[in-house]
Design a protein around this nucleic acid. Structure first.
Lengths: 230, 230
DNA sequence: TAAACACATTGATATATATCAATATAAATT
DNA sequence: AATTTATATTGATATATATCAATGTGTTTA
């Protein structure tokens, strides 16, 4: 772990938007308590079941957040990139992580002591409200995932997944998703074999272009239709 | 709508536990802004998509909270009873309900203006923290549902559902679940026909006793095993 | 009293998707 | 260069579960 002296929470360009609600000395408190760490692709950042001692903020790179279910089957809840707070809902329930996090590219992250965050929640109600907004939004995402997994068929879920990666995560019609077929399956609720078959199908129908892990959306319109109807 | 003059939020026995964090005048503010209403079984309390103008607290009866998905397929997120706050995560995102609520028995509920709740969140940080705890716990429930729906087979989900109703909702090994086969399916992620078949199977194996909508757990041990393995 | 309606039950069939097994390819290690 | 290891691909098969259709039961409505 190291801390770059030049960058602080005050001038950081990729800090959590809710930090805007903090007063200077509160921000300084965060800055003083934080540690930075670097992870290589594939490395685990924290494990489900471990204590939620820190809130985590990515400062560079991409990571996956995933629930480890029964017999080694994972569900990827989200692909995350800088700016987003990562502090599992367990922080305010049982102080345990209810999902794991691993880097999918080289990644740097700030660790902030959770007791400091909780202290600021009690001291600064605008910050508390920001936290509520944050967790509420994530809740809605989980609802969406529940409905999608439950009611859409594979084609629809994969189309939705690709659109999500393109629109929300990599913000480009062509992107390296950094995910194995297995992981794409964990993101969209299907087996790796099904992912392979459907990607090929989409490829053959000129809806996407697939080259290893680089996906290019060729017919976004069609993909959206599949996403809705499937 | 009516308001019983004798009962106030101060002396109410079924109020939300987080109200303990409020000062007397804050509780009085809640009490002054609240309205009570009565619902018959089956009546809708609020609809997905409508504005989250009020937080709702059941004061008697049982209700279901359900997401309306694609082509009339619902997912029952929770069966609720008094004490629990019902204020959808939309309150802090887009001011819209992201699920519907309907009474499954005769029900009374208090409606509290959401602007009052939000005002108190900003004024009272312990209350804000209580709200965070509440929404965090619910988030974990949704995670659990996502994993269960995704990875357990029907037998496991139904067993889990029956145990949940018995342990957490009706708090008795024998209970009237107040749910149609259709609704039991929406709670456990299967069709009504599958519910019928599995209930019969559990009945025939003397795991439960089923009489219309009254379920009696005969072999809890076995049910727990099925819940885990399934 | 009959008709209509909501819900429950049963059986036959369809289908989406997982599982299993084999092989191919590419990357990492010896 | 040879071997191991992780990932990807493909085809054949199994299976859980939904769908469809018919019938039954009880309750409300006309």
């Amino acid at each position: 772990m190291y801390k770059e002296s030049s960058i602080t929470c005050k001038n950081c360009t990729c800090r959590w938007s809710n930090f805007d609600n903090l007063k200077e000395e509160q921000l300084e408190l965060i800055n003083a308590s934080r540690f930075q760490a670097q992870f290589k692709a594939g490395e685990i950042i924290f494990k489900q079941g471990s204590p939620t001692s820190n809130a985590i903020f990515l400062t560079s790179g991409y990571a996956k957040i995933y629930i480890e279910g029964y017999d080694d089957k994972n569900i990827i809840l989200a692909i995350v990139k800088p700016t987003r707070l990562i502090a599992g809902p367990g922080s305010y329930v049982d102080n345990r992580h209810h999902y794991s996090m691993a880097a999918i590219t080289e990644t740097t992250a700030c660790f902030v002591d959770m007791t400091v965050i909780k202290k600021l929640v009690l001291e600064n109600s605008a910050f508390a409200e920001g936290y509520l907004k944050d967790i509420s939004g994530k809740s809605l995402n989980t609802f969406h995932k529940l409905v999608s997994f439950n009611q859409k068929k594979m084609h629809g879920r994969l189309a939705e997944g690709i659109l999500h990666l393109s629109d929300d995560i990599y913000e480009s019609p062509k992107f390296n998703c950094n995910l194995t077929r297995q992981e794409l399956g964990e993101l969209t609720g299907m087996t790796k074999e099904s992912v392979v078959r459907l990607l090929k199908e989409f490829h053959d129908e000129n809806i996407i272009k697939m080259d290893d892990r680089v996906i290019e959306i060729l017919d976004k319109n069609k993909l959206q239709k599949i996403s809705i109807s499937g």
